[in-house]
């Protein structure tokens, strides 16, 4: 979503993005001229008149599980977004019985929050697990 019109979205997709991604962008490119939606999400920059790089993860119940907002010069890390979705999906499927510690990615161990774990995480989780 950006403040560009749907016509500019079409031109960008048809003339540039479709050269990067076969078939063009597969999801909706939304137009928020005036920044009305950006304002309620807190990502509209009134001075510049554009939306900042906000990314919101919304679960199947419509709950915001996470967000990240960057100023325009720095691009996102799509891998991190996907990792977070995988983690939130795992937690949701476990109905909250599992949690993903720092550095978790698919295949790495999860934690089962319980009283016995308090003060004992150091035994099962090592700091090098925070990194790839």
């Amino acid at each position: 979503m950006s403040i560009d019109s749907i016509y500019v979205h079409k031109m960008w997709n048809d003339n540039e993005l479709s050269k990067m991604v076969e078939g063009g962008v597969p999801y909706a490119m939304l137009s928020d001229t005036g920044g009305k939606v950006g304002k309620i999400y807190g990502v509209y920059d009134e001075d510049a008149g554009v939306e900042t790089r906000g990314r919101f993860l919304i679960d199947p119940d419509g709950i915001i599980q996470g967000f990240e907002v960057l100023t325009p010069p720095v691009g996102r890390n799509i891998g991190e977004t996907l990792r977070q979705i995988q983690a939130f999906q795992l937690v949701r499927e476990s109905k909250g019985s599992q949690a993903t510690p720092s550095g978790w990615k698919p295949g790495k161990m999860t934690l089962k929050p319980e009283p016995g774990l308090v003060g004992n995480i150091w035994k099962v989780w090592k700091t090098d697990m925070a990194f790839d």
Partner: peptide, 9 residues
């Protein structure tokens, strides 16, 4: 699940 992304332009 929905990923909602805003970007400057």
């Amino acid at each position: 699940w929905v990923v909602l992304c805003f970007y400057p332009g």
